[in-house]
């Protein structure tokens, strides 16, 4: 029985999300992947994709189609996708505070406050150790202290690992913000000045407010935070921060599938964490985050370069106003 379950999960993933993620750059994915698909008629255009076991294969374009939405009729925004477990790996050795992740996030979620949902902290453990840049977003903890304290079940944990907020239900008590040790939650102290853009986008995409697209729209007097972009995953694309990063710092994927990708490179999650000694923030608190960090050793980028971008007092660019 269990085997059946895991088989069907594997099939689902093979056909759905996995390919979606891997083919995110092309925005398209193959209907099916297997040895039989390798036989292609001569002259037909092919596309290179990575299979689940990590080998590159050629797939004819005719076999490639739009990924259907992951959401089926059973989709429940409070339950999330079955048999998926979202996970992120942040490679600190690659981060030089380019801040593209932050501006992409701010833009896509129409963040208009003074506190971004994704912040790049200038960190230094002690004077004798090297400083480094640490992109920090909601850690989507498996034991989320914010969810524990919410009096009205406005913030909730889904089976796919996401911690989301129902802004229609939030009473604005801010207990979750006090409880979060990572300071990733922000409050809409005033009426968010998101302007017409959020509404136009909502109209174009026929969206209604849903907790799985945070900031669409934001509401005065409620708490906001990073949602791990399930609305992008649903389209077979990567979260905004992941695809915006010029240095490939962010890897996103599925823990069950044991795979993460930054769009260019794909790794086995377990191997990556073992090889690079991955860790999670404040592990001792027992919050069990879904975001892993790779230590800033053997750095591919220069820390000092990031200083030109560093602004201690600003994380949301409001120059458009």
């Amino acid at each position: 029985m269990q085997e059946n379950d895991s088989n069907s999960r594997r099939n689902f993933l093979d056909k759905g999300l996995k390919i979606g993620l891997l083919a995110a750059v092309g925005g398209a994915a193959a209907k099916a992947l297997g040895p039989e698909n390798k036989e292609t008629s001569v002259g037909e255009e092919t596309i290179e994709l990575m299979s689940t076991d990590g080998t590159l294969i050629q797939v004819p374009m005719s076999e490639v189609m739009e990924v259907p939405s992951l959401k089926d009729e059973n989709y429940n925004v409070r339950k999330g996708y079955p048999n998926l477990k979202f996970v992120m790996v942040v490679d600190l050795a690659r981060c030089k505070n380019a801040k593209q992740c932050q501006s992409a996030c701010n833009k896509s979620h129409y963040i208009t406050g003074d506190d971004a949902w994704l912040k790049i902290y200038k960190m230094q453990e002690s004077e004798s150790t090297a400083p480094y840049w640490q992109p920090t977003l909601c850690q989507h903890c498996d034991k989320p202290p914010c969810v524990k304290v919410c009096p009205v079940d406005a913030t909730f944990k889904r089976q796919d690992g996401l911690v989301l907020i129902d802004a229609d239900r939030c009473i604005g008590c801010r207990f979750c913000m006090a409880a979060c040790p990572y300071s990733t939650r922000v409050f809409n102290w005033a009426e968010p000045k998101q302007g017409e853009m959020s509404e136009i986008t909502m109209d174009m995409e026929h969206l209604h407010y849903s907790p799985d697209y945070a900031g669409m729209p934001s509401q005065k007097g409620t708490v906001d935070k990073c949602d791990f972009c399930p609305h992008m995953v649903d389209k077979g694309e990567l979260p905004h921060c992941v695809s915006a990063c010029p240095n490939g710092v962010f890897f996103f994927g599925d823990a069950y599938e044991d795979t993460v990708t930054n769009g260019d490179e794909t790794f086995r999650l377990s191997k990556l964490l073992k090889d690079k000694a991955g860790y999670r923030l404040m592990e001792s608190l027992g919050t069990e985050p879904s975001v892993y960090y790779l230590p800033p050793s053997n750095r591919l980028v220069d820390f000092e370069e990031g200083m030109t971008n560093y602004d201690e007092f600003k994380s949301v660019d409001k120059s458009d106003e």
Partner: peptide, 14 residues
């Protein structure tokens, strides 16, 4: 409270 008009959520969704 940021949303005092939703006070009754405490009883509906407590």
């Amino acid at each position: 409270m940021g949303r005092p008009e939703r006070l009754f959520n405490l009883f509906i969704h407590g």
